[in-house]
Design a protein around this nucleic acid. Structure first.
Lengths: 207, 207
DNA sequence: GAACCTAACTTAACACTGTTAAGTAACGGA
DNA sequence: TCCGTTACTTAACAGTGTTAAGTTAGGTTC
C-alpha cells in the first residue's frame, strides 16, 4: 500500500463525493434544474474538476441511474421468500410503487426520460439476476405463475406478461409524478389507485 | 372591416405561423432540443418577435398542448357510436395508444413531463365534455359499464376505474417512448403489448 | 538531491441558451 | 402634420455545459 494506492483511493473519494452531491441535488430538484457549477460548489471544487472524473453531465446521471436500478432491486428483498406466487406478485407491485413515490426524481430519470442507447459493455449490473435486476425478479414470478397454472389459459409468454404488469404499475406511478399538479382530473388517492391497479392485474391474469 | 380588423387578422396570422413552426419542430425533435432562435429562423422573424406573441417558451408549449388534448379527444370520434360498452372500451384503449405512438413528442409533453399547475381560468378546453375531454370520454364508458352491470361486484367508483384504465394504457405507451432504445429488456412487439394490456383491463374488470 | 513528469486540479473562455432593454419603422387617428 | 401605438429588430445579459490553457503538488528517475 504505497503512495500509488493512496492516490487511487483519494481519487475514488473525490469521485464519490461528486456522486453524492449530484445524487442529492438531482433527487431534490431534478436533473435539468441542477447545474455543474452548483454540484461543484457543494463539494468546494471548480466546475471543471468534475470533468476529470466524469465525461459529461449525462455520464454522471448514468452512473447514478445504475445505482438506482440496484436500489430498486433491493426494494424487493424479503419478498422473494413469500411462498404464494400471486401474493408475491401483489407485494412486488406495491414495493415498486413505493420506490417510485419515494424517489420521484430518480424514477423520472430511470423510467420517464428517453436516454440514448447504452453500450452493454459498460453495464454495471448483472442482467437477468433477480437480485440485481428488478425486471428479472418480476419475470421469475410470472414464470412461476404460468408453470403452476395460476394464470388463465392462453397466457404463456412470461416476457409479454411481465412487461404488461410492469407497464400497468408504471402507469400509476408515472401519471402520479407527471400529473399530480393537474386538477383537470378528479384524482383518487394514490393508495387507492395503486391498490385498484394491483387488483386489476391479479383479476385480469389469474383464473 | 376597417384597418383595425386587418391588423388583428395579420397579428393572428403571425401567431399561428409561430405555432405551426414550433409544433413541427417540437414534434420532430422534442421541446428541449428546439431553440427560440430556430423557431424564429423558420418563420423568418427575429427571436424576440416570438415574445410579442407568447410570454415565453413554456407558454408556447402550453398552447400547443391544449391543441393536442383536443386532437386526442378527436381521435375518439366514431368510437362513441359503438353500441357495446366493452367493445367501446377496447377501441378507446387502442385509439389512445395509437395517438401516443404517432405523436411521441407531443405525448411526452402532455403526459410524461411535469408541468407547473395551470390556472383553470385560462383553460381553453371544456372540462367534462366527452367531445373535448378524453378523460371524460373514458369516464362515460366506465360509468355506463358500471350502470349496466358489466363490471365485477365491488367496482363502483367510475373515477377510480377510469384512472386505473388510463394509467394502464399510459404505462404501455410511456414505457415505449422512454425505454424503446433499452435492450436490457427483451421487449415484445408494441402491438402485442397493447393488446395484452387491453385484454388484461377487460378481463380484470368485467364479470 | 536536482530534474522531470504526470495527475489533479484552477482560471478563463467559448458557444450556446432563454429572455429583456432599447431603439426603429410603419401606420391609424386627431 | 403631428402623435402615439403596434410590431417588430438589434444588442445585450445572465446563465448553461464544456474545453483549452495554465498551474501546482507529488512521485519517479538519473
Amino acid at each position: 500500500m504505497g503512495p500509488r494506492e493512496r492516490r487511487e483511493r483519494e481519487r475514488e473519494e473525490v469521485r464519490t463525493r461528486i456522486l453524492d452531491a449530484a445524487r442529492e441535488l438531482f433527487a431534490n430538484e431534478g436533473f435539468e434544474a441542477v447545474t455543474m457549477r452548483r454540484i461543484a460548489d457543494r463539494i468546494e471544487y471548480s466546475p471543471t474538476a468534475i470533468y476529470f472524473h466524469f465525461r459529461d453531465k449525462e455520464a454522471l446521471l448514468k452512473e447514478l441511474c445504475d445505482n438506482d436500478f440496484g436500489a430498486l432491486a433491493h426494494q424487493f428483498e424479503g419478498i422473494a421468500q413469500i411462498p404464494d406466487t400471486i401474493e408475491r406478485l401483489r407485494r412486488t407491485g406495491y414495493a415498486y410503487a413505493q420506490f417510485g413515490i419515494e424517489h420521484p426524481n430518480h424514477y423520472r430519470l430511470m423510467f420517464m426520460t428517453p436516454h440514448p442507447p447504452i453500450d452493454p459493455a459498460e453495464q454495471e449490473l448483472e442482467k437477468g439476476n433477480p437480485e440485481e435486476d428488478a425486471y428479472a425478479f418480476l419475470r421469475v414470478i410470472v414464470t412461476e405463475a404460468i408453470a403452476t397454472g395460476r394464470f388463465r389459459d392462453g397466457l404463456g409468454d412470461a416476457d409479454l406478461l411481465a412487461q404488461t404488469i410492469w407497464a400497468a404499475m408504471h402507469g400509476v406511478i408515472s401519471l402520479q409524478i407527471a400529473k399530480c399538479n393537474d386538477d383537470w382530473v378528479d384524482w383518487r388517492p394514490l393508495e387507492a389507485r395503486t391498490k385498484a391497479m394491483v387488483d386489476m392485474i391479479v383479476d385480469g391474469l389469474t383464473r
